[in-house]
Each structure stands twice: as C-alpha cells, then as structure tokens.
Amino acid sequence: MPEHEAEGQHGSPTWEVRDFLRRRREQIAQRWADESLFRAVFTVSRDEAVEAGRAVVEALAEVAGTGRPENPAAAGFTTVREQLGRMGAARARAGLTPAQISVEVDALRPPAVDLLVADFPDDAPAGFVRECTNALTALMGTLRLVVMETALNEGEAMLDRQRLQMLEVATPVIRLWDGIVAVPLIGTLDSARSQVVMETLLEAVVTEQARFAILDITGVPTVDSLVAQHLMKTVQAARLMGAECIVSGIRPAIAQTIVHLGLDLGTVVTRAGLADALGYALGRLGAGIVNAAPRGAEPR
C-alpha cells in the first residue's frame, strides 16, 4: 500500500487537510464569497462574505485537527454554528427548500477541493492525494449537515417566535380611563396564553400607571383549575405592584365550574360585566359619572 509509505512523509490526511485549510484560508474564503450561498446572504458587502468565509474555514481546520472530519457535534463548529444557522435561515426565508439549501452548501466543496489538489506537487503519491480529498469531502459533508441541522432549529425557533407574537396580538390592553386598563380575553386560555396575559396586563399597569386592571373573561368558554390559578396569581401580582385587579364577565356556567372545582376566588374582586367592573374602579378612583375629582390622574 503506497499510502502507508506516504504516512511518514505527509502525516495523516486529516492533518494535511487542516494545514491546507489554514494555509489557503484567504483563497478559499475569496472563492466562497462568489458562491451563491454567501452572495445571497451577504448582499451588502463582499468583504463581509469573505470575513464569514474565513471564520468557516478556520472552524473546519479545527475540526480536521481532531482527526474526525465526520463529526457534526465537533467543538470546532461551535464558533460558526450561529452564523451558519443564520445563513441557512436566510436562504429558507428566501424561499429555498432544504434540498436547494443543501445543494448550495455542497457547491462550496469543488472550489476547496480544486485548491487542495492544485497544492500537491506532481510527484505526490496518488493514494495520499485521494485520501486527503476524501477527508476534505467528508469534512464538507459534515459542514452541510451542520448547516441543515442549525437551519432546522432556527426554523423551529422562528415558529416559536411567531406563536408568541400571535399570543401577544391576541391580548390587547385597552386603556379605559386614566388609571384603568382592561384586557378582554376571547377564546381558550391555556397555560402559555395565561402567562402572556399576566405579563401583558402587568406591563400595562406600569406603563399606564393604572391603579385598576380589569380582566374580562366574557369571551372565555371554559375555566379549568389551572386557568383559575393563573387568574389568582395575576390578581396577587397586581396587588404587590400596587394595583387592584378585577375579574369581570364570569358567566354562570363558569361560576358553576369554579364552585365545582372547589376553587377559592375569595380574595378576588369580581363583577358580572365589564361595565360593572369599570363602574367599581371609577368609584374607587373617586370619579363618578361626572369626573369631579380625578384621583389617580397623576402625570404618567
């Protein structure tokens, strides 16, 4: 086996690849900057694309140095994972399918392999050259895996973000009066949404300096014990902040459920409808129908 004789002269193929990557970092980065993956992501300046390319080459060199070019979990990828994820995600947003992104990443391989082959002297043992090309090819395959995996994760994270944005959109806070805010809830309350409602309402209490916060649950079909607990927590947290939280719109069926579940809403101020709750809050603020003494009308 000629490869074995070559070992002594050249070291292991992965190390050879590592040294090559470090030596040719600049040239590889320059060539990649012209490939569609980099061109499409770094549209503003080519320098940025080259810079990003350098970082990826350096990461690949580090992974090659470990002798395991096929390991997508290699620590060497850590530094560029975020960047690769952003690139993959940017291409996904541009409408590319995973298969198309995969092809784009794969397009980075030929320029690198060409440079590697060109670097060998004419009399280099053919077997060793092949081993090195194989190692670089394996390394580039791993890079493709890392991009795909990271892009998929980014995609999931984006879904999470969108889900959260939807929750926030579905939770409008209305300023009813100086010092009175209300959140009319419509639809099913689950734990995640209750959490968002709580945070949104309490944030509004601060920004509006609202002494009264009304949670109107007229549009909520059912209340289970978990949701009731969240309501209780919201009321208690509002009190700690110096505000009073009123729950309005408890329909008879829900009242019945609450009694059946044995839930104690004893310390919570409840009113039949939003108007009753507003009336109660206005009364407590000292504002009647005629706003004679607007308590709580301090500058915000």
Partner: peptide, 8 residues
C-alpha cells in the same frame, strides 16, 4: 444559537 462563553 449562542456559545457557552460566560455561562459555564
């Protein structure tokens, strides 16, 4: 994705 720097 962020690195573990400043976390460990």
């Amino acid at each position: 994705m962020r690195t573990a720097e400043g976390v460990e």
